[in-house]
Simulated assay, not measured.
Amino acid sequence: MKGPRLQLYVSLNGYLLEYLKTYAKTLYCEYENDKNAILPRNWRWAEIAEIAGMVCRGIAPKYSDVSDEVVLGQTCVRSNLILVENGRTHAPRKKTEKWLKKYDLLINSTGVGSLGRTAQVWFEPKKLVADSHITIVRTADPGMRYI
């Protein structure tokens, strides 16, 4: 897809992303300090330990040009997107539970200007892992969507 139609889709996606961010912030501000507030239907308060099956930092990679496993660094988490093309290949030591899965949440955990950036894995990753500057949050129930 090229030209004006592509530009229209890019513009619409940008608009929708900003709308969702604004709406999420509004909801957060409305309920953040009032545990007694009447929540919207199907909402409830939960502790992170109740909904997260894993909260951990990524791995310390050993970079290698002769591997097909990609490690994501902080530059890969931008504008709520995962930029796999910014990742680097590394030589995996062994299979790890830290290999990314669909719906994992990635949070940049260090760095001036990048601390706190987030993105969710909305695709089926293959041989993809985050480095130790990124926190991985994995849902305890893969059937649930915590958006």
Rank of each mutant, 00 (worst) to 15 (best):
V121W: 00
A46G: 04
Y23A: 04
L81T: 10
D65V: 07
W45I: 02
A119N: 02
V77G: 00
W122Y: 11
W99R: 15
A24F: 02
N36Y: 10
E97H: 05
T110M: 03
Q74F: 02
I136Y: 01
A49N: 08
A24V: 01
K2N: 09
S132I: 00
E69D: 14
K98G: 06
C56K: 11
Q7R: 08
P4F: 03
I51S: 08
L83M: 12
L27Y: 10
G116Y: 01
P61Q: 07
G58T: 09
I147C: 14
E30Y: 01
H133C: 00
T22S: 12
V10S: 07
D65Q: 12
Y31R: 03
N80Y: 15
V77A: 00
I48L: 15
N108T: 14
K2S: 10
N86Q: 13
L20V: 02
A52N: 04
G111Y: 09
G73L: 03
Y19H: 07
R44F: 07
Y19A: 10
G143P: 00
K62A: 12
R5H: 09
Y146R: 08
V121Q: 08
V84E: 15
V55P: 04
M144G: 04
A60M: 12
L6A: 09
V66T: 15
L128Q: 12
G14P: 00
Y103P: 02
L17G: 06
I48H: 04
I134F: 06
R57M: 09
I59D: 09
V10W: 04
K95V: 11
S114Q: 10
K35I: 12
Y31Q: 05
R44Q: 12
L128S: 08
D68T: 15
T75E: 14
T89L: 01
A119Y: 05
I136R: 01
R145W: 07
V71Q: 01
P4V: 06
Y9L: 10
A24Q: 12
Y23L: 03
R78P: 00
N80L: 11
T96H: 13
T22H: 10
E32T: 04
T89C: 04
L128V: 05
F123N: 09
T89S: 14
D131E: 12
S67N: 13
Y9I: 01
